[in-house]
């Protein structure tokens, strides 16, 4: 693999993903409106969820809005990752996946580039949300926005790899609704995005256990701690390992000798 060729392909894949994302006005608007609706409406109704306690990384009592902003940033990445997964299935059904996979570059590079491109595409929207959240008095330290960048990127890569792995397992576009119901919603609701772990433990130790094992919880905590200039090392390790595991699973799914492609009915 020639480095220059590989980088040109990466740039081309990134450009395509950005053009497609910006061109889909509805998706773009939904990406920013969805978390604002949660913040502006849902959070008002659930203000009492936190009760009276100080939860790290916060050093004082906080409003519920402050608590859920990192979770909503995670939600943006989760939904974007799943949308990308959906578009991979669509690309495969429509055939444009073939254009990508017949490029003279290793498949791991092509798929990795696609995940990276997807993640970098959504980051400006996540930052726009974080800035708009300041109107709700959610104001992390200025350097927190800088520190959150690697956390958001890693979380995005992990969720992108998860989406890619899912896309390799989904045979038809029609099955995607099932994935939404059985994978994405449980992943989002059984996590620390909307309520802290200690609150879950009080009500249901089982759900709390699931939330603790859920990689999405760790993605949210990584973002939350980074925004307040702290490193959550367990979350970092979990997110890194989960990224690798999901990516390996995706490579298996797209391997020409195994997984989806080998089972594919072509005619």
């Amino acid at each position: 693999m020639k480095i220059r060729h590989a980088l040109r392909a990466l740039a081309g894949i990134m450009r395509r993903e950005m053009l497609r994302f910006v061109g889909q006005h509805g998706r773009l608007a939904a990406a920013i409106v969805r978390p604002l609706v949660w913040l502006g409406i849902f959070a008002v109704g659930f203000r009492s969820v936190l009760g009276l306690s100080i939860i790290p990384p916060y050093q004082t009592y906080i409003l519920y809005e402050v608590y859920i902003v990192p979770g909503l940033a995670g939600m943006m990445l989760l939904f974007h990752g799943m949308q990308s997964s959906l578009s991979m299935v669509y690309d495969r059904e429509m055939g444009s996946m073939r254009v990508l996979l017949t490029a003279p570059l290793p498949r791991w590079w092509l798929l990795g580039a696609r995940i990276l491109a997807n993640t970098l595409t959504v980051l400006p929207i996540v930052y726009l949300f974080l800035l708009l959240a300041r109107f709700w008095e959610v104001r992390p330290p200025g350097m927190g926005y800088v520190a959150a960048l690697p956390a958001l990127t890693l979380a995005g890569l992990m969720l992108g790899a998860f989406g890619l792995a899912l896309s390799s397992l989904i045979r038809q576009l029609e099955n995607f609704a099932g994935v939404m119901n059985f994978v994405i919603f449980p992943m989002f609701f059984a996590s620390t995005a909307l309520y802290p772990l200690w609150r879950l433990e009080e009500v249901s130790p089982v759900v709390a256990g699931l939330a603790w094992m859920n990689p999405f919880s760790h993605a949210v905590e990584l973002i939350r701690f980074a925004l307040y200039l702290r490193l959550e090392s367990v979350a970092l390790v979990v997110c890194s390992l989960a990224s690798i595991a999901f990516f390996v699973l995706a490579l298996w799914g797209y391997d020409p000798g195994r997984g989806f492609w080998a089972r594919r009915t072509a005619d």
């Binding site: 220059r4 081309g12 053009l19």
Partner: peptide
């Protein structure tokens, strides 16, 4: 844009 995407995949 379609052609540029393909060209980049082939390292042009």
């Amino acid at each position: 844009e379609n052609l540029a995407y393909h060209a980049s995949l082939h390292g042009l």
